[in-house]
Write a protein that binds this DNA or RNA. Structure first.
Length: 670
RNA sequence: GCCACUGUGGCUUAGAGGUAUAGCGACGCAUUGGUAAUGCGUAGGUCGUGAGUUCAAUUCUCACCAGUGGCUCCA
């Protein structure tokens, strides 16, 4: 016999001859796309170049399909280091891990740029073709081997301190410090592509040396690589910054300021529709709408604890004119001023970095009884935060944004039910928008820490409520110890954008702190005064970030109810001007967002132009339509239906809009 | 904030030490066309901002502003 049978997750069984290496098995599986990409093979000490013996126990097949890719990617990182050190003799490799969609390697070297990547990539491919065996070596002389590379020496001494040994992997003349495992030969790394170049700091600390980071990706076969590159191209096209410009959804003006979004008419429609939608849901769930100003006194934030503690991430305070004048006459310096503000010796106003302090004052404006609870106050509240300049990006990371915020003032007993209600709201919204690819993080206490506000008993209940609510969603969720805010546990919703970056959107947070700080109370049934608990929640997170992610989610092709313009009317000749005006007016009366093009361009030209703006439907009007009170409909995907009575179209599109469906009514079965 | 790169009419872009391309778009004229670009013409730019070098700068240098890719950060 001497065959080794490997059972794959999809049930298939592969057989291998005795003497095969674990690495070869992994790559055989990778190549055959069995719905998994790797096998764990026990008894091989995770070294994929070790030969398997007949009695070897090959039992574990990874459900986690990432492991094989991880090995491949990490091996490619080594190949990159080999190529770079051969091309740039002075370059010192530092660290080069596998990451989600590929790998990177950081080098201490002279600056290079994008154009140099091609040469490095070529070198990698020629090394790969060389079919160098990748072998593990145990060496006691690591310090000597890497004596020219202080970065590696640092890693080695760290490992020694941890009591962990280390090994090296050798391919040709190149060797690198590594615990493995690796693919058995560089030949497995043919389908490699370098993507970008950037800088990073040694160990992520900006006080350390700046390193050149090269990103790349690698796949077991060239079709997978091609597809990945195609996906990247596709993602670029969906980038909300590009689409936001093309579709005229928002604008950022240097004159207004960095990270400050100007919602242009077409983008404002999307935001307004979303707000209307959520406002309606809130009404059903017993929320009260409130409005509060964009600024508040510094003292408000001293009480809440946000000032001066979070001063770094706030716009500087506004000081009254007369006071400033007086201080300046007194020869007060900037640092004096800052100290006086911090100490509370002078007051001023702060652009609000969050809405909760204002809402607490609405709560406190009346005596509250347990019968009033839960009290749910909702506001689309605009807040301002001083994000670091390098962090600001498009709509997803901005300095002024509007949260679809609400604060629930509840009794401890009500927490579970109300948290669940908040979660359900998020679920409704994500469901309507077809955003099913998200994950949930439940932030819990770090049991070792005592920084938390509130009773341990209360926390137990609140955490249990968060976990129960999260698990009711039926999507992956993680419980993350130590990720809770100091004031309470939370549930966060995390969605990926097209480039693979994760964005936190909605959040639900339990808060024991603010009610304490603002001394909020309610009268219980027992006649005693009690402390309410606050729940902060924002299902979208912020309108800016949410719409940014939505633009990418829909690639600009919004469902009809969200489309900035739902119908574009296109006439075939100027003779239909009058009929077009009538159709336009009729649609407008029916509450449909419509735009007309009666210019004397050709029909083909007009369709081409208007397609770019992605209206849900185009109506083509010619002689025939005008004569019969009909329209010809052209959907976004190009399907068309001729001679539909106008009234029929209005009925159909109105129903589509009303139901907020993402499926167009016009679907032909061709 | 840190590192690297980038910044030319509304958009996409060519170019170079002697004030600058082209396409789309806009506007005008002709054209009245049935589903992804009809033809011709016109207008539109102090080449991100400020300073320096130079006989001369948009092109070189510096600072600033903004964007991109990362790093760090995100109550």
């Amino acid at each position: 016999m001497g065959m080794i049978a490997v059972t794959l997750p999809d049930g298939a069984i592969n057989e291998y001859a005795k003497g095969v290496t674990a690495g070869e098995i992994v790559f055989d599986i990778l190549g055959k796309k069995h719905g998994c990409v790797a096998a764990t093979i026990n008894d091989v000490e995770s070294d994929f170049s070790t030969e398997l013996h007949e009695d070897c126990n090959v039992e574990g097949i990874l459900a986690d399909s990432d492991a094989g890719m991880h090995i491949l990617r990490h091996s490619a990182a080594h190949l990159l280091a080999q190529a770079v050190t051969e091309l740039y003799p002075g370059a010192l490799p530092t660290i080069g891990p596998a990451i989600d969609s590929g790998f990177y390697y950081d080098f201490a070297m002279e600056a290079i740029d994008e154009s140099d990547l091609k040469a490095i990539e070529k070198k990698m491919q020629s090394l790969a073709r060389g079919n160098l065996t990748i072998e593990r070596e145990d060496s006691a002389e690591l310090q000597t081997l890497f004596q020219a590379n202080p970065y590696k020496l640092e890693i080695i001494s760290d490992k020694l301190e941890d009591g962990a040994g280390s090994t090296i992997y050798r391919q040709g003349d190149f060797y690198d410090l590594c615990l493995g495992p690796h693919v058995p030969s560089t030949a497995k790394l043919m389908n490699v592509k370098l993507l970008s170049i950037s800088t990073a700091y040694w160990r992520g600390d900006q006080n350390n040396a700046s390193l050149i980071r090269i990103y790349g990706t690698v796949f077991p076969d060239k079709h997978q690589l091609k597809e990945h590159l195609r996906n990247l191209e596709e993602a670029k096209k969906r980038d909300h910054r590009k689409l936001g410009k093309d579709l005229q959804l928002f604008h950022i003006s240097e004159k207004v300021g960095q990270g400050l979004i100007l919602w242009t008419p077409r983008g404002a429609v999307i935001r307004q529709e979303l707000q209307d939608f959520i406002a309606k849901e809130l009404k059903r769930q017993g929320y009260h709408q409130v409005f509060t100003p964009h600024i508040g006194k510094l003292d408000l934030y001293r009480t809440s604890g946000h000032f001066p503690y979070y001063q770094e991430s706030q716009y500087p305070p506004v000081i009254e004119r007369d006071l400033l004048k007086k201080l300046s006459e007194d020869g007060c310096s900037c640092s004096d001023l800052s100290n006086m503000m911090n100490d509370g010796d002078i007051d001023g106003y702060l652009l609000k970095p969050m809405n909760c302090p204002h809402h607490t004052q609405i709560y406190a404006s009346q005596l509250r009884s347990y019968r009033d609870l839960p009290l749910r106050l909702a506001e689309f509240g605009t807040v301002y935060r001083w994000e670091q300049s390098g962090e600001i990006s498009g709509m997803t990371r901005v300095r002024g944004f509007t949260q679809d915020d609400a604060h629930l003032f509840v009794t401890e007993e009500q927490i579970a039910k109300e948290v669940l209600g908040c979660i359900e709201l998020v679920q409704i919204i994500f469901g309507i928008l077809g955003m099913n690819d998200y994950r949930v993080r439940v932030g819990l206490r770090d049991p070792a820490s005592d920084k938390y506000v509130g009773t341990s008993d209360g926390w137990d209940k609140a955490e249990a409520a968060c976990i129960a609510a999260a698990s009711s969603l039926g999507v992956p969720f993680t419980e993350e110890e130590g990720e809770a805010a100091f004031y309470g546990p939370k549930v966060d919703f995390v969605v990926k954008d097209v480039i693979g970056r994760e964005w936190q959107l909605g959040t639900v947070q339990v808060d024991y702190n603010l009610p304490e700080r603002f001394d909020l109370t309610y009268q219980g049934a027992d006649g005693e005064s009690h402390r309410p608990v606050m729940i902060h929640r924002a299902p979208f997170g912020s309108m800016e970030r949410f719409v940014g992610v939505l633009i990418e989610h829909f690639a600009g092709k919004f469902p009809t109810w969200l489309s900035p313009t739902q119908v574009h009317i296109i006439t075939i000749s100027e003779r239909q001007k009058e009929y077009a005006a009538k159709v336009h007016a009729t649609l407008k009366d029916a509450g449909i967002r419509v735009e007309s093009d009666t210019s004397d361009n050709t029909i083909g030209k007009k369709i081409r132009t208007h397609r770019k703006m992605q209206p849900a439907y185009m109506l083509i009007l010619g002689e025939e339509e005008a004569a019969s009170d009909c329209v010809s409909i052209r959907a976004r995907d190009g399907t068309q239906v001729k001679d539909v009575p106008l009234s029929q179209f209005i009925t159909d599109i109105s129903e589509e809009i009303g139901s907020k469906t993402a499926t167009p009514f016009l679907v032909t079965n061709e």
